[in-house]
Amino acid sequence: NKFNKEMRNAYWEILLLPNLNEQQKRAFIRSLYDDPSQSANLLAEAKKLNDAQA
């Protein structure tokens, strides 16, 4: 399933972002589970926040 693969990839990438705190990571991951079809958008948002907090 395409969404499962995308979601899994986004999950691990979000977990490994160094500048997000645990609460932020949990919020993004919760959103991933709520709507896996938004994986790419959520990952992009997480990366943007990660860069902003660098």
Rank of each mutant, 00 (worst) to 15 (best):
N4F: 10
E6F: 03
K25I: 07
S39D: 01
S37G: 04
A27D: 03
L16I: 05
Q38H: 09
L49Y: 12
A10G: 02
P36F: 06
K48M: 11
R30W: 13
D35P: 01
N21G: 11
L43A: 10
P36D: 02
N19W: 14
S37K: 12
Q38V: 05
Q38K: 13
P18E: 07
A10P: 00
M7Q: 12
I14S: 00
D35V: 11
N4I: 07
D51G: 14
A10R: 03
M7T: 07
R8H: 05
M7N: 01
R26M: 09
N1W: 00
E13H: 15
K25M: 06
E13V: 15
L15V: 12
R30A: 04
N41A: 07
W12G: 05
R26F: 10
S31N: 09
E45S: 12
A46M: 01
A10Q: 02
P18Q: 07
N9T: 10
A40E: 06
A44L: 10
L16D: 05
L43S: 12
Q38L: 11
A27S: 12
Q38N: 07
D34E: 11
L20A: 01
L49D: 05
Q38P: 02
L42S: 04
S37N: 07
L32G: 01
A46W: 01
Q24I: 07
A44E: 06
Q24V: 09
R30D: 02
S31E: 07
Q53V: 12
R30S: 05
N9Q: 15
F28Y: 10
N50K: 01
A44H: 10
D51H: 15
I14T: 02
I29V: 09
S37I: 06
M7E: 07
S39Y: 15
D34V: 12
N50Y: 02
I29E: 01
A10I: 09
K47Q: 07
I29K: 03
D35I: 13
N19M: 08
L17D: 01
E6G: 01
A52T: 09
L17Q: 08
N50W: 01
A44F: 15
N50D: 08
I14M: 10
E22R: 09
A27V: 12
F28I: 03
L17P: 00
P18K: 13
Q24K: 03
L43M: 07
Q38G: 07
E6Y: 03
E22W: 10
R30F: 10
L15Y: 05
Q23W: 15
N21I: 13
A54R: 02
L42V: 10
M7D: 02
N21T: 09
A27I: 08
E13D: 05
K2W: 12
K48E: 08
F28Q: 01
D35A: 10
L16K: 15
L42A: 06
M7G: 01
E22I: 08
D51F: 14
I14L: 07
I14D: 00
S39F: 15
Y33G: 02
R26V: 06
N9S: 12
N21S: 07
N1H: 04
R26T: 04
Y33M: 11
W12A: 07
S31D: 06
K47L: 06
N41D: 07
K25D: 00
Q23S: 10
E13I: 15
E22A: 12
L43D: 00
N21E: 12
A10E: 01
N4V: 03
L49W: 12
D51I: 12
E22D: 11
S37A: 10
L42Y: 10
F28N: 00
N41Y: 14
E6N: 04
S39Q: 04
L43T: 07
M7W: 15
S37Y: 10
I29R: 04
N50G: 06
R30G: 03
R8L: 12
S39W: 14
D51P: 02
K5T: 01
S37E: 07
K2D: 15
S39I: 06
N1P: 11
N4L: 11
L32I: 05
A40M: 12
L42D: 01
F28W: 07
F3R: 04
A52Q: 07
F3M: 10
L42T: 13
E6Q: 05
K25F: 06
K47G: 03
L43E: 03
K2L: 07
E6L: 06
D35L: 10
S37R: 11
K2R: 09
K47I: 05
N50E: 04
D35K: 11
K25Y: 04
A40P: 09
L20D: 00
